[in-house]
Structures are given as structure tokens and as C-alpha cells.
Design a protein around this nucleic acid. Structure first.
Lengths: 208, 208
DNA sequence: CCCTGCCTCAGCCTTTTGGCTGATACGACC
DNA sequence: GGTCGTATCAGCCAAAAGGCTGAGGCAGGG
């Protein structure tokens, strides 16, 4: 039986080393390359054509994990990519899934879970860590909470602490429009005021 | 020469595995135990009396890294503890240092840096990753920005998105007093408004 | 004992924010 | 060709937040 080939992309050497050691215990899984950035991952996918890519989402400077997933899958359509990260923020999960990730593992996952996800990925089975799955479920249970692109843009600036006037200047819209968007955002987030919206956005969505 | 004994405390199995693998390449460093929580770390320190403890700050549920450092050092005075974490928020660094940490390493540190920090720790030399050191320096360069206990308490609630009225109710003080504290907080943080204060606090201090 | 820092509070006035109602415009979809 | 979602804007009013000045109590240090 030919071993499943895996590419590791994570900016932390310690994590890559740990994964290599863990995956090394499995005879049917072989790490063929390890890289520390999204750009390198893209190149390595072309060079090695691994069966599965394990990708961290936070990768220091440059291309982030989500962009890397999109780039990889546009270059190699159908390439199975597993997200392997510390966080399980709503936004990250949703963005990863619609960037085409086959699975979403948390770094505190048990080794068996990791192995199972890799084996599943080559067969086209997707795997989510339980907390991730439940968040994703929540997300689709309440699709009313999906912000429009413009609203999301505004929220991002809002979390910088800008005033309505500033928001208007930055987005080239009137203060009246800013207020309209804000009202919609508050309703969707289920909050009463600006402060709460910022708190919610920063906590829930891992926006920083 | 007797090898330096090390205890690893980190809730991520992958990270522990990676560190074991990296440290295993050094003949003068021996990992004597690895644990996944602050409570276990405390027990392991007593049982193994390691030369150095490497401690993560974020450790899921239960005792966090800072508490664990304090507990370890109160049980074994002078025990060298190295913080090994992903983040370098101001608050974490300062709290770790005054909990008695001997050094502060980031997870993306080069292996040589990690080895050096461990070797230094047993000799009583403290080591900081460069970005950490510069933040610590900044912190002491501008001590005016130190919030009073009451202000910190208020800021914590502020980041929950509460209104002035709510803040007053929670802290059993009048809205007038809340405004006074807020004015001081804004001045110390160097911000103009509530929204900015929340953003700054959440981003800079890793309060969540 | 005085000074300083911290916590507490009041009043006054301006600016900002939020709630509401209503309106126009454009593109997609049926 | 109508409908829906999105984005844009206005005006009005009430509530909240912020700037300013002033002030009392209390603990700790010189």
C-alpha cells in the first residue's frame, strides 16, 4: 500500500516538528514536505503534489492561511486541504470552509483524530473537530446574522475605534449611511450599542 | 556532565511532541516529564524537581499559565520557569515577569534560541525573545500608562460593551464617577473615545 | 502635619450616537 | 416587469457619551 503523502504548512517550527513526529508513527502516512508560509506552501504543492495539505491559518506576515487555501485550490483544483489551527472563531471557520477546506482540526486534537482526518481527506470525507462542527452548525442555523460585504467592511473599521464621521470619510459615504449600516449591524449581531458591537466582533470573530 | 532536566507544560500535544523532538537533539538537555495543564505541572515539579520548567500561558480550562507560574514558584522558590507561548501581549508579558518567569519565548523562536534560553535559565540568566523584550522595555518607558486597580476593573467591564449606567450599577458608583474614571483611562491609553479604548484594550492586552 | 494619589460625586454644556420613518437607485432573479 | 436585497441618503428627536471645573474623603509617605 502506498503511503498518503502530506504537506505541512505552519509558521511554527515546533508545531511542524511535533506533527512530523506524530505522523511518523503511522506507516500509511508520509510527510513529504514542510513549509513555514503560504507562499512556500503554494510552491510545494506544485512540486510535490501531496495527497493532503495541512495548513495553519495564522502564518505571520504575508499570505494568510485562507488566501493560501484559495491559491492552492485554484492552482490544483480538488486538492484536499485540512486546516490545523489553534482557534475556532466563527469567521475563520466559515471562511476556511468556503475557501474549500476539507476539514478543520484544532491543535489540541488527539492524534487519532488527526490521523483519521488525513485518511478521510484523501477519500473525500471531511472532518471537523467537534467544537468547530458545532460552531459551523450554529452559523447555518442563523443565517440572518450574515453581514453584507459593506457591513463587514464597516465593522472592521468600527473595531479600530473610529467615529461615525471617520467611518464616513474612510468609506466615502455620508454619516447618514454609516448610521444605517450600523443599525443593521447591531441588529444582526444582536447588540444594543457600538461598544458592544466592537466587543462582540473582536471576541467572536478573532478580528485583530 | 549531567544533562539539564526540563519539564514541559503545554496543553497542545503537538507542541509538546515538537519540543521533545527538538530538545532531544541536544545531549545536554533531557525532558523528564510533560504535562497538559497547570495543575499537573505543579505536581510534576514536586515529583521531578526539574532544572527548568517550560510553561505555556494559555492552557485551556483550569489554572492558566500565570497562576501556574506563581503556584510553582511559591511551592519551589527559585524554580526557573520559561514562558513558551504564541502571544506577546503587554499584559501577559508583564504579568509573567512579575509572576517570576525567568524568560519569555515565542513559539516561532528558532531552536537555537530555545536551547540558549534553557541553558541560560539554569545559570540564572534570563532570556526574552526580541519582540518581547522591546514590549517590556516600552512598558517601563511609559509607566504613566499604568491604570489604577479601579480603572483596570472598569476597563475590563468596558470591553464587555457596557454603558456608563451599567458600569455604575456593576461597580456601585454613580455615573459621574464612571465618567471620571473613563476620562482618566482615555488619557492613559492615549485614545479619544470609548470605542477606541475597547479596541486598544482588546488588542493590546489580550483581555478576553 | 501636609502632600499626593486614588476614589468618589455634581453640574453644565457640546458632541456623538441611536431609533425612526421614508426615499432613491441599481442589479439579480423569477 | 415586478420583487428583493443592497447601498445610498435626509431629517428629526431622544439618549448617551465626553469635556470641563470644582470638590470632599481617605490612606500612605515624607
Amino acid at each position: 500500500m502506498k503511503a498518503i503523502t502530506v504537506l505541512l504548512a505552519d509558521d511554527h517550527l515546533v508545531v511542524r516538528t511535533g506533527l512530523m513526529a506524530l505522523l511518523g508513527t503511522q506507516t500509511d502516512i508520509a510527510v513529504v514536505a514542510e513549509v513555514g508560509s503560504g507562499e512556500e506552501a503554494l510552491a510545494a504543492v506544485e512540486a510535490f503534489r501531496p495527497d493532503v495539505v495541512m495548513m495553519d491559518l495564522a502564518m505571520g506576515a504575508g499570505m494568510d492561511g485562507i488566501e493560501a487555501i484559495k491559491a492552492v485550490r485554484s492552482k490544483v483544483p480538488g486538492q484536499p486541504v485540512l486546516v490545523f489551527t489553534t482557534y475556532d472563531s466563527d469567521a475563520d471557520i466559515v471562511r476556511a470552509v468556503d475557501a474549500g477546506a476539507m476539514g478543520y482540526l484544532l491543535k489540541d486534537a488527539a492524534p487519532e483524530e488527526i490521523f483519521a482526518a488525513i485518511r478521510g481527506a484523501v477519500k473525500g470525507t471531511s472532518h471537523m473537530s467537534p467544537p468547530v462542527a458545532s460552531r459551523l452548525f450554529e452559523h447555518f442555523r442563523n443565517p440572518g446574522a450574515v453581514l453584507t460585504p459593506r457591513e463587514a467592511e464597516l465593522l472592521a473599521l468600527l473595531t479600530q475605534g473610529l467615529s461615525n464621521r471617520e467611518l464616513g470619510r474612510r468609506l466615502f459615504i455620508s454619516e447618514a449611511t454609516v448610521k444605517t449600516h450600523l443599525a443593521h449591524i447591531y441588529a444582526k449581531l444582536g447588540v444594543q450599542a457600538r461598544a458592544e458591537a466592537i466587543a462582540t466582533a473582536l471576541r467572536r470573530e478573532g478580528m485583530r
